[in-house]
Design a protein around this nucleic acid. Structure first.
Lengths: 165, 165
DNA sequence: GGGATCATGTAACGAGTTACATGATTTG
DNA sequence: CAAATCATGTAACTCGTTACATGATCCC
C-alpha cells in the first residue's frame, strides 16, 4: 500500500513521470522516508494502471512511458493522507544492535557504537546537502534531520557511558 | 537475518525459552526495535535448529519446547554484533505522511500532524512505563525515548508552522 | 462446563531483494 | 566504437502478514 501512496504522491507533487524518473526520485529525495528499486516500481505501476489510479499519458523515446495520476488516484492518495493512521511499526537493525549491546564486552560495545555513530553521521551529511528548499519533502527532511541529530547525541552519551564503566 | 539475530539475542540474554516466550518478549520488550509474530517465529526456530544455531533443550507441558542457543549460535550472534554494519534502510509511514504533507491544505495538514503527534505520544507513554531497569534493552530504550521526544517536538514545531501560515 | 490463556503450527498472500536480461541513445 | 546512462522488464527467492486450525491447561 505505502509504495502505491509514495508513487501517487510523487506523481501528484512533481507531475507526470516515467518509472525511471520515479525510481530516481526514490533514490534522491524519498530515500530517507521509503525505499524502492525499479524492479518493484515497474510492476507496481502496471498494477496501478490496471486499477485506474494512474494512466500512461504518452510513450516517448527509448520506450519511455510517462505516467500521470488519475482523479481516482488523487482521491485514493488524499484519503490515505487524511484518514490513515500510520503504523508505528519499526524494524531497525541499528536499534537491534543497540538493544543487544549489553551482550558485548566493553571494547566491542564501544566499537559497535562508534560504527553506528559513523553511519548516522554519514546519513546526516547527505540530508544536510538536500538543504532548505524542497516543496514536497520539506517537513520530512526536518524530521529526519532532528532524528539523526538526536541519534548522534545518543551515540555520544552511550560512548561516554561505556567508557566510564 | 535480523529475525534470527533477535531470537539468538533473546536466548543469549534471558536464557532458554519457548517460541511462545520469545513471541511475548517481542511483544513486550523488543517491539520498539523489531517486530515478529508467532507465525514467523515458530518456523524460524525450526530452521535455526536445523542449522545448528539453537537446540531443543526439553519438551515441557502442553507441547512446550524449550530452545537454547548453541555455541555456534552464540558465535553467529557475536559476529553479527561486531562485524555487521547495520543497514540504514528506513520505511516509515509516518515520515511518508510528513513528506507528502504539502499536498494537503492547511486544515487537513494540521489534523494529520495532530494524529501523528498523538501516535508518538501514545508510544512514548508505553516506553516510559518500561522504566529505568532493563539489562538487555537499556540502551535501545534510551534511544527510542529520545527519538520519540524529538519527533513530538517536530510535530509541535510543524503545527506552529502550519498555523502561522 | 466455559472462557482465558498457554502453546504450536500451516497456508495463502503480499511486499521487498537480488540476479538476470535486453536494447536504445548519448558522449567522449 | 566503446562506455555511460537511459529505460524497461522477468524470475526466483526471502521476509512478513493474515487467516485458519488445533488442542491442553487453568481458573471461576
Amino acid at each position: 500500500m505505502s509504495l502505491r501512496i509514495a508513487l501517487l504522491g510523487l506523481l501528484s507533487g512533481v507531475g507526470p513521470a516515467s518509472g525511471y524518473d520515479l525510481a530516481k526520485k526514490f533514490e534522491h529525495s524519498l530515500n530517507h522516508v521509503w525505499q524502492a528499486g525499479h524492479t518493484q516500481i515497474y510492476p507496481e505501476l502496471v498494477k496501478m494502471a490496471s486499477d485506474g489510479l494512474v494512466a500512461v499519458e504518452s510513450e516517448g523515446a527509448r520506450g519511455r512511458k510517462i505516467y500521470t495520476i488519475t482523479p481516482e488516484g488523487t482521491r485514493e492518495l488524499h484519503e490515505w493522507m487524511v484518514d490513515h493512521a500510520p503504523s508505528l511499526t519499526i524494524r531497525s537493525e541499528i536499534a537491534l544492535q543497540a538493544f543487544l549491546l549489553p551482550l558485548l564486552d566493553r571494547d566491542e560495545a564501544i566499537a559497535t557504537v562508534e560504527r553506528i555513530r559513523a553511519g548516522y553521521q554519514a546519513r546526516l551529511a547527505v540530508l544536510e546537502c538536500k538543504g532548505g528548499e524542497a516543496g514536497l519533502g520539506k517537513y520530512a527532511l526536518r524530521l529526519g534531520l532532528s532524528q539523526l541529530r538526536t541519534s548522534i547525541q545518543w551515540a555520544d552519551e552511550t560512548l561516554a557511558d561505556l567508557k566510564r564503566a
